[in-house]
Design a protein around this nucleic acid. Structure first.
Lengths: 190, 190
DNA sequence: TGAAAACTGTAATGTACGTTACATTATCCT
DNA sequence: AGGATAATGTAACGTACATTACAGTTTTCA
């Protein structure tokens, strides 16, 4: 039933999504829906909570400090790119941005599941590299911020708004390489 | 009347905004609204079109090639930051991201008024500096993308979703300086 | 097996709101 | 001034939909 809710909510938005449509798709009954979630908002929150954890899960994998830094960054960037270009994750993003003011718990859940773990893991990883003298980076948080910001470029915004289709793998890979190049420049320069 | 529509739409979103509320606020009459705009969607589009041009206007100012590059970048970054942290612009952003799928004309209008002019102007400016040997930058578009991406950091996302209040001027200025530092690093390095 | 709990289908209720109709009033132009 | 044009106020219409009520059915499990 949460799957059906996700599909309908992500496609139409909160207000336009009708509970009858969700029930029709999920196969359950309206009564059970109210039994389980209490209200439309309850179902919405439960769905977002579940999907946040599920969609963002690839972003929480820790990084082994022994590997080549560039390869590690590329791996992280590819994982992030995969999430950014996932149609369901894009629906979730639109929900968080569009309904976040009406539902303050949405941004909380989103940041706690996605950006926060990714950024703390990256800060830990890069700080470790810096401490061991492998890279020189006096301001790790800023570099991590820069990395995340650069990943979410026009490519992402134009896709999430439907202005262009999901890009080919080659195009996302080019973007990954470009961002990692720029970040590596920030790490090795003096 | 467009002012009232903007206030109500930006605060509540398209579906939750009621035409009666807009009329009550604007002082006009429901009949005139339909006379002028034809429907709720018509008013919405007219409002977004008007506000896009108005809000994004500071981003379209051209740059004099004679000035110090860093100062120019700081000036651009401050202007962009001013727009990003403007409550009305944030409402517009939420509309474009949240309702863009239902209203494909919204992203079109938005990109044409905001990101597109800013980026082409910056590309022109930096290419000129490169051609004249003032900076070294073989891939200007990527640097411009990086600049725009870094400006829209967590600071912006957490503010636009209501997770934190509009930041103090000192905080935005720190962010401006940090981004410009990183971009200058991309321009001068080898 | 048999009762308790959970699930289902359908109908009813209430409400909010977009949209239209229409009669009335104000504004403009020559 | 006076007719044409636009603006206003109000009421009505229709619809979509969240929510509840209730009676019937299935599942669970001891």
């Amino acid at each position: 039933m949460i799957d059906a809710a996700a599909a309908i909510f992500f496609e139409h938005g909160f207000e336009r999504a009708s509970l009858s449509a969700i029930v029709r798709r999920s196969g359950g009954s309206l009564s059970t829906l109210y039994q389980l979630f209490g209200s439309k908002e309850g179902l919405f929150e439960a769905m977002v909570t579940q999907r946040c954890a599920q969609i963002m899960e690839p972003l929480t994998t820790p990084h082994q400090p022994g590997q080549d830094p560039r390869e590690t960054l590329v791996r992280i960037a590819r994982g992030l790119m995969g999430v950014l270009m996932d149609p369901e994750a894009q629906g979730l993003w639109r929900m968080v941005m569009g309904e976040g003011i009406k539902f303050p718990r949405l941004p909380e859940i989103y940041f706690r599941c996605g950006p926060d773990p990714l950024q703390t893991a990256m800060v830990r990883y890069l700080s470790d590299l810096h401490d061991r003298g492998i890279v020189h980076c006096p301001d790790v948080p800023s570099v991590v911020q820069a990395f995340c910001g650069m990943m979410q470029s026009d490519l992402f915004y134009r896709t999430v708004t439907g202005m262009r289709p999901i890009p080919e793998a080659a195009e996302t890979e080019r973007h990954v390489q470009k961002v990692v190049d720029l970040v590596m420049g920030m790490l090795t320069r003096r």
